[in-house]
């Protein structure tokens, strides 16, 4: 493998060597690969029976079942397929926030995304990358070559935060780039309207995409750090709010926890994987969750 850009450190690769990017849901690719797909396939693993429809391959009819039930039923098998992972990295201005964490949210997200990309390519799978704020800023189509990985890492190495967080719109715009079920890994702070996000993800879910929501927050965002009167300036809109964090901290923390709980509930309801993290924590446990 060619030498990786500096965003991916040797210790990362050493540590990630034991991981395998396998989302707990099965992948569905169009090339044969190492991942199980839920569609019909040619492997030896039986999947299910289904009724015959005109146009189906007659070779797949289970004649024994026809003899027993007098119905034409197709016997389907799982088939091994490749994994296509679409990485969505939020590059809006809010991702540039850093308070109590060692790095900004964007740096953390890019580092994580680089690791995921490396892991995917290392597994001979295809990865695509989209950097977005209110629109798709950079897009790399799926690929599994080392050069493709290097391009991904180069993009992730020096991202520039800017623009507003418009994740639903970005997802809708990127919808045309996804034509078959893939794995979506969305890395963002998700400081947006959850209902709109859910609506935007619906089309992906209907397509059969596996969606992983990785929420990156700064510890200061969770507990509203600071003391005394402060004037908070929104990094995206420039809006100003003057308040005393000491007086709001408790309610704010409660609201943030509630927001994470809502996201978790939404993800669980729609079969998505929700992985919250903060910039002061290592992201390797996320890979544990991804590998389950």
């Amino acid at each position: 493998m060619a030498q990786a850009p500096s965003i991916l450190r040797p210790e990362d690769m050493t540590r990630l060597a034991n991981y395998r990017f396998a989302v707990r849901m099965m992948a569905e690719g169009w090339l044969s690969g190492r991942h199980r797909a839920r569609g019909r396939g040619s492997s030896s693993d039986f999947l299910e029976y289904r009724a015959y429809a005109p146009g189906d391959d007659p070779r797949l009819i289970d004649w024994r079942a026809f003899a027993r039930t007098d119905r034409l039923q197709l016997r389907t098998f799982e088939h091994e397929t490749h994994l296509e992972c679409h990485l969505f990295v939020d590059c809006s201005a809010s991702m540039d926030f850093r308070d109590r964490g060692p790095v900004s949210k964007l740096a953390y997200a890019c580092h994580f995304a680089a690791c995921v990309a490396w892991l995917v390519v290392r597994g001979k799978d295809r990865v695509s990358l989209q950097l977005f704020d209110e629109q798709v800023r950079d897009y790399l189509p799926p690929g599994s070559a080392t050069t493709h990985l290097n391009r991904c890492l180069s993009l992730l190495e020096n991202p520039i935060a800017g623009g507003r967080t418009e994740l639903p719109q970005a997802l809708e715009r990127a919808r045309g780039l996804v034509r078959h079920p893939v794995t979506l890994v969305i890395v963002s702070d998700f400081l947006c309207d959850l209902a709109a996000l859910q609506a935007a993800l619906n089309s992906y879910l209907h397509l059969g995409c596996k969606v992983v929501l990785v929420q990156v927050l700064d510890p200061g965002e969770l507990s509203l750090s600071g003391q005394g009167l402060a004037r908070f300036v929104d990094m995206e809109s420039g809006e100003r709010v003057t308040c005393n964090p000491d007086e709001l901290r408790r309610t704010y923390t409660e609201r943030m926890v509630a927001m994470q709980q809502r996201m978790h509930a939404m993800a669980a309801a729609r079969g998505m994987l929700y992985l919250p993290t903060t910039t002061d924590r290592s992201f390797y446990p996320l890979f544990d969750a991804l590998a389950k």
Binding site: M235, E239, R255
Partner: peptide, 22 residues
């Protein structure tokens, strides 16, 4: 009256709502 410290923050949507409530 203390002069407020200016702090850049990722999103003040929640803060604005809380301040309004408070």
């Amino acid at each position: 009256r203390t002069r407020p410290v200016v702090r850049r923050f990722s999103s003040v949507v929640l803060l604005r709502e809380l301040v309004r409530l408070q």
